[in-house]
Structure formats: C-alpha cells, structure tokens
Amino acid sequence: MWQRLRRASFWLGMYTAMVMAFIIYLPILLLIVFSFNDSKIMSLPWNGFTLRWYRIAFSREDLLHALFNSLWVAAVVTAVSLVLGIMAANGMAKYRYRGRSLFTGYIAIPVVMPWLLLGISLLLFFNVIKVPLSLFTVILSHISFDVPLVAVIVAARLHQFDPTLEEAARDLGAGPIETFRLVTLPIIAPAIVAAGIFAFSWSFDAFVVTHFVIGSQVTFPIWVWSALRYPKNLPVINAVSSIIVVVEILIVYLGERLRRGEGGGVLRSND
C-alpha cells in the first residue's frame, strides 16, 4: 500500500489519503472513541470516560465463546492454507509446463468469486455429500478461499525469485528439502508472513460464507450480526471491535516491519 502511494504522484497520494481518512480512518477512530463513552447510545453528547463496556464484553460467555471459535478456526485455516497455498504457488511460478496458465487460473479464480456465490455453492455441496454443518464445514469453506489467496501472494514473490539460487544450494551439497528450508523459504518469508496475515484476517472476518455453512455454531462475525438486533448490545460490540481493530493494526505493522527487513535481521538462518 505505502509503496504504491510512493509511486503515484504526490497530489494523487494526498487526495487518496484524505479520502481514506474520511471514509475509513475517521469512522474507526469514532468507533474507538465512543467505546469509552459512558452512554448506551453511540452519539454525542460525551457522557464521560468509562471502561464499563469492556468489562461487560469480557464477562459475556456467548461473546467469548464466539471469539474463541473465530480465533481457532482462523488459526487452523491459516496453517492449512499456508501449506497448500505455498505448494500451489510453486506450481504456478516455478515450473514451466503445458497448461500452466490454466492451472494458475484454476487456483486463482476463487479469490475473485463473489462471497454469496461461494457460500451458496458450498452449502449445496455439503448438503449433497451429506456433511452436517459445523465449525468443520466452516474451516473447509475458509480454506477454499484462503488457499488461492496465499497462492497468489506467494507466487507473486516467487516470480521474482532467482532459480539459480536454488541450483547454487544444490550444487553446494544441499538436498531438495534442505534447499527449500535454507534458501527458498527465508527469501520468500516476507511474502509468507504477509499471506499468513491476510489469510488469518480473511477467515476471522468472513461473514457471508460462514453464515451459509455454520449451522448452529457461532463465530465472532455471526455473533456481532445477531447481537446487532438488540440496540443495548451496541456499546459492547463497539468495545470488542475496538480491541480487534487495534490488534489488527499491530499485526499489519509488525508484518510490514518483517517485510521491510527483507530477512536481513529477523529471519537470518544460520544452521
């Protein structure tokens, strides 16, 4: 994102920044500010600072349960998607063979598929093969869009990867797996970290697809959606959302630092 800004002309950059400030960052800032407002409705006047909503949020079993579900679903989905996605990226970027572009399209298309379509087709599919809806079907569904996401991000990096580096490693006595571990992996690590962050947050945020395939279980977005029907829940939702926003900003910031480091400091591999 920042790189792209740098490339665009200064004024275009300023303009974009202002628009973003108004339509993205201002609302988020308001959300956070109002989560500390001692009032049941989210509007002025300011009734004084309170941590009440946070206390309530952390005492609500249903909310904590949903949050916990979302976290571990996202963790499993991210782990599986990274492994499968990196393998797919290898196939997309590294080897030349007949039908490579077909394979690339085949892998990448789910990334741009509308959520609604994906949700409906997954629901039909699980019905046809008679798999009961649960968190398990949620995990499968999230994997179906996170694998292509990871593959696309990692393949972009692999395209720039100099294959003679792997040949040099082999030449110096490293086997294929060692070569991947000691040379390929550290060099594409920044892309993998970025892919992991995206994969995790896509899974964590997924509402539409999840809604179709979750059955009677609850994840955080599903909980928010159902809680929204009762206005008294609003301040609590506000509080939890604020925490999540801050955590996500932190993660993106750390990921960006890793990426900037280009593996020079943090990702040194010595053995």
Partner: peptide, 29 residues
C-alpha cells in the same frame, strides 16, 4: 543429483544467497 557430485559451479550471475552474510555464504557448503 548435483549435491552428490564432487564438482562445483561459479555461476554467471554469482547467485550469492541474499539473506546470508559473506561468511555464511562461504560456509554454506
């Protein structure tokens, strides 16, 4: 396979490992 041969290559484009120091590059083999 290349790793089994008692033969080494100096590549046309050097192919130094960008994430390793000079010491670790030379110590790789």
């Amino acid at each position: 396979p290349p790793e089994k041969r008692d033969v080494n290559i100096v590549f046309q484009n050097y192919a130094l490992f960008p994430h390793l120091t000079v010491f670790e590059n030379v110590a790789f083999g």
